[in-house]
Write a protein that binds this DNA or RNA. Structure first.
Length: 309
DNA sequence: TTGATTTGACCGTC
DNA sequence: GACGGTCAAATCAA
């Protein structure tokens, strides 16, 4: 397909997507009734547009090494600002010296009526090793590390924190990358190929089944990772329809700039693994934010310092 | 019994 | 000194 045709196709897809968004806004359905048939259908429409746009973008990129990204505006975050943790550096494993590794942030919206357990399932096994009240936040931050840390020396960690502004949003920050076997599972190309064959079924499920536990603590469960999950979610995650009803834009920002398009394959792998946070089809909305160590330095300064501990 | 979670304490950074 | 991230002992659960 020529460049001109691709552009036209992209333009038409965008137009359709915008119309669907306007319809969504027009319906103005509260989040609690998200599972009505109308909303489900609307979300499927939006999903289709997003996927189509992603495919077009992906194919037009040529090499296939880049990642399909919806060409929509990227608001800072679902909460209106970037997270404070991004103003900190990571700690070197085994010591408390800080290191400078890439971290990425992902925001996952979950249905308050159903729950959050599954939203933390990203295809990896995590073990909680800490929890801390963070100043200026309502909810404690939970710290997880890869279960295979001891056996395989996997240094991947993640931090999960519920948004102050919308308790249905879980902000997950991934630190480091998996070096354990389960990571290779997630990244297998054959798996990705398999995933692409089952997009609709997963998208359909992705807006179902959540429930919040009575507490803010989420217990990670040992899970088996279906290879068909990663890519499905990866694609479906680019759906603005899954985001906060207060906005219509797509909410996945990759480090706040466009350099993401030029990222290496390893970063693509990171994205895919991050995308698997919706793997058991319980995530209603999701937001990726890749954050380098050079992020907004002003953010944390706005926080009120009052540790509850 | 084993693995996961909880939680107070510790440490480095700011 | 405040804060965030991690450690590790105590506790819990399967």
């Amino acid at each position: 397909m020529g460049d001109c045709e691709l552009k036209n196709l992209t333009a038409e897809l965008r137009k359709g997507r915008e119309i669907a968004r306007q319809l969504q806004i027009h319906l103005n359905v509260p989040y609690s009734s998200r599972e009505t048939r109308e909303i489900m259908l609307l979300q499927k429409i939006l999903n289709s547009f997003e996927k189509s746009l992603s495919i077009v973008n992906f194919s037009s990129s040529g090499s296939g090494a880049s990642v399909p990204i919806p060409m929509t505006e990227s608001p800072p975050s679902l909460t209106g600002h970037s997270r404070g943790e991004d103003s900190h550096h990571d700690l070197i494993d085994g010591s408390k010296k800080r290191k400078s590794i890439r971290r990425r942030m992902q925001q996952v919206r979950v249905d308050p009526l159903m729950g959050v357990e599954g939203s933390l399932d990203d295809g990896f096994s995590w073990r909680k090793y800490g929890q801390k009240d963070i100043v200026g936040t309502k909810y404690p931050r939970e710290y997880y590390r890869c279960t295979h840390r001891k056996v395989q020396g996997c240094l991947a960690t993640k931090q999960v924190q519920r948004s102050d502004y919308d308790a249905t949003i879980l902000e997950t920050t991934y630190l480091g990358s998996h070096t354990c076997n389960q990571a290779t599972h997630v990244l297998s190309p054959s798996y990705q190929q398999e995933q692409s064959q089952d997009l609709d079924s997963v998208n359909e499920q992705s807006i179902h089944s959540f429930h919040f536990p009575s507490t803010s603590i989420v217990k990670p469960e040992p899970r088996t990772f279906s290879p068909s999950m990663a890519n499905n979610c990866f694609m479906s995650n680019f759906s603005p329809s899954l985001m906060s009803p207060s906005t219509s834009g797509v909410r996945h920002s990759f480090g706040g700039d466009e350099s993401f398009h030029q990222n290496s394959g390893s970063e693509l792998n990171d994205i895919i693994s991050a995308a698997t946070s919706v793997t058991n089809h319980q995530t209603v909305g999701i937001d990726f934010s890749f954050v380098n160590d050079e992020f907004d330095p002003n953010f944390d300064k706005d926080k009120v310092h009052q540790d509850s501990r």
